[in-house]
Simulated assay, not measured.
Amino acid sequence: MEVVKLKRTKLGNTDIEVSRLCFGSLTITPFQANLSIEEGGRLIQYAYSKGINFIDTAEIYDNYEYIKYALQGIKREDFVIATKCYAYTKEMAKQSLELALKELDTDYIDIFLLHEQESIHTIRGHYEAIEYFLKAKDMGKIRAIGISTHRVEGVYAVTQYDELDVVHPIINMAGIGIQDGSIQDMLNIIKKAYNMGKGIYGMKPLGGGHLIGEVEEAFNFVNSVPYIHSFAIGMQSKEEVDCNIALLKTGKIPNDLKEKLKKKKRRLIVADYCIACGNCVKTCKQNGIEIIDGKAIPNENCILCGYCARNCPEFCIKVI
Rank of each mutant, 00 (worst) to 15 (best):
T89D: 11
I171W: 11
K84F: 05
V4E: 14
Q45R: 11
D242Q: 04
I55H: 00
L248T: 03
K258Q: 13
A296R: 05
E128M: 06
D15I: 04
T122H: 13
Y156A: 08
K137C: 09
L257T: 12
M173A: 01
Y64C: 04
H210Q: 08
Y108C: 03
E214L: 04
S119T: 06
P313G: 05
I292R: 15
D256I: 15
G306C: 07
L104H: 02
A157P: 07
E91W: 08
R267S: 15
K282P: 00
K7Y: 04
F54Q: 00
A82Y: 00
A136S: 14
N172Y: 13
Y127T: 06
K84D: 00
Q286G: 01
C308G: 07
S19L: 02
R76L: 01
M1D: 03
E314T: 12
A309Y: 07
S224Q: 08
T283S: 09
E217S: 11
G175M: 11
I28M: 15
C22I: 01
K264T: 11
S19E: 04
I269Y: 03
G209H: 15
A271N: 12
C280P: 02
A33G: 04
G209L: 14
G146V: 14
D162A: 13
E65K: 15
L99D: 11
K282M: 06
I233K: 01
A93T: 11
I320P: 00
T14D: 08
I67M: 00
A82K: 01
E300S: 12
I245A: 05
C284R: 01
H150D: 02
N53S: 03
L43W: 15
I289T: 01
K141I: 07
E128I: 04
K75N: 13
E214M: 08
A174Q: 09
E65N: 13
A246I: 03
L304A: 01
I16F: 02
D56N: 11
T250C: 03
F219W: 10
I303L: 02
E118M: 08
A144T: 06
E259F: 13
I74F: 00
K10N: 09
I200C: 10
T9Y: 04
K84W: 07
A33N: 13
V281I: 11
K5P: 00
H126W: 12
H115M: 10
Y61P: 02
L101W: 08
G154V: 13
A100H: 14
N287C: 05
G146A: 14
M173C: 02
K102E: 13
L35Q: 07
M173V: 05
Y127D: 09
I183F: 06
A129G: 07
N244R: 06
I212E: 11
D293C: 07
I176C: 10
K249S: 09
T159C: 12
Y194H: 15
G125C: 07
A33C: 05
R20T: 15
